[in-house]
Design a protein around this nucleic acid. Structure first.
Length: 273
DNA sequence: TCCCAGGTGTCGC
DNA sequence: GCGACACATGGG
């Protein structure tokens, strides 16, 4: 399958998904209930386990990256990030796995989060699939803790029960406007502003979401606020105005820049916005 | 060993 | 609304 303006490796390593693995030049992981293996050679994708339509949807290949980039390319910093990580795309994940992943991401690091998700899949999922809300809701808090979830165990369990019982309908949420969607997500146990924005961006394709985590917060304060004391909410509101309706894409590019450039760059002189 | 991690819930102003 | 604090755990 032909693709343009897409870098598979960059996209999978950008902290949106946590269970994909590299096997030589190829990558493998789950797209919902399907186990998929993908190999990218230049602008060609060779794959098994899914369909072209599903693949395009998952990696947002149906969207024109050039148009998106043009919209958000409003200053030198994001311009540099766009150039450096060109081909990075937002992923449209399964909402439940995305929600669970980011509930567990709280006060955590990515290697350990990966371990936690894999243990859940191995112990409670079918042949490696991530377990659904019904299945996880039946698992005791004690069993969840034995997977290393720590204090997040009751949050994940409560969220699973809420979805399993239908008090949260992840399919219906898809049809809601951004503000209503955010409000419903925030009502889920263990979901705060940051996780809600992640789910909006990584599962529901809401490009106007702008999750502010420690990395983006640190980078934005350095790059756009001269290290000033601003709250995460102020950063998010600034970003929506500054980068516009595709600010979520800007967030993902800046996140990679902030992490990829390592700490010294973040400590460097602040740039004018 | 020690630090820190893609935060949230809860409390007190 | 905002700041401070606790929270379990293990990777690096």
């Amino acid at each position: 399958m032909a693709c343009s303006d897409f870098e598979l490796a960059t996209t999978l390593a950008s902290g949106q998904v946590f269970r994909w693995r590299q096997e030589g030049p190829a990558f493998s992981g789950w797209m919902g209930g399907s186990f998929v293996r993908i190999l990218q050679i230049d602008s060609t994708l060779r794959f098994q386990g899914t369909s072209p339509v599903s693949l395009r949807r998952f990696f947002s290949l149906d969207l024109d990256l050039k148009k998106i980039a043009f919209q958000m390319d409003v200053d030198e910093i994001v311009h540099g990030a766009i150039q450096r990580y060109w081909g990075l795309r937002l992923i449209r994940q399964d909402p439940w796995e995305c929600l669970a992943s980011f509930i567990l991401s709280a006060f955590n690091n990515i290697p350990r989060l990966t371990g936690m998700l894999n243990r859940l899949a191995t112990r409670f999922g079918e042949s490696g699939r991530f377990p659904g809300p019904e299945g996880l809701g039946r698992v005791s808090e004690r069993a969840l803790r034995s997977c290393g979830l720590g204090f997040r165990a009751p949050y994940l369990r409560a969220a699973a029960l809420a979805v399993a019982r239908g008090s949260v309908d992840l399919v219906r949420l898809r049809s809601l406007e951004d503000d209503a969607l955010r409000k419903d997500l925030l009502a889920i146990p263990g979901v705060g502003e940051k996780v809600a924005e992640c789910v909006m961006l990584f599962a529901y394709g809401r490009a106007s979401a702008f999750p502010v985590d420690v990395w983006i917060g640190r980078a934005m304060r350095t790059w756009y606020f001269r290290r000033g004391r601003v709250t995460d909410r102020q950063i998010r509101e600034f970003a929506r105005r500054h980068f516009g309706p595709t600010c979520g894409w800007a967030q993902q590019y800046l996140y990679c820049l902030a992490r990829g450039s390592s700490r010294p760059a973040l400590r460097g002189p602040s740039h004018p916005a």
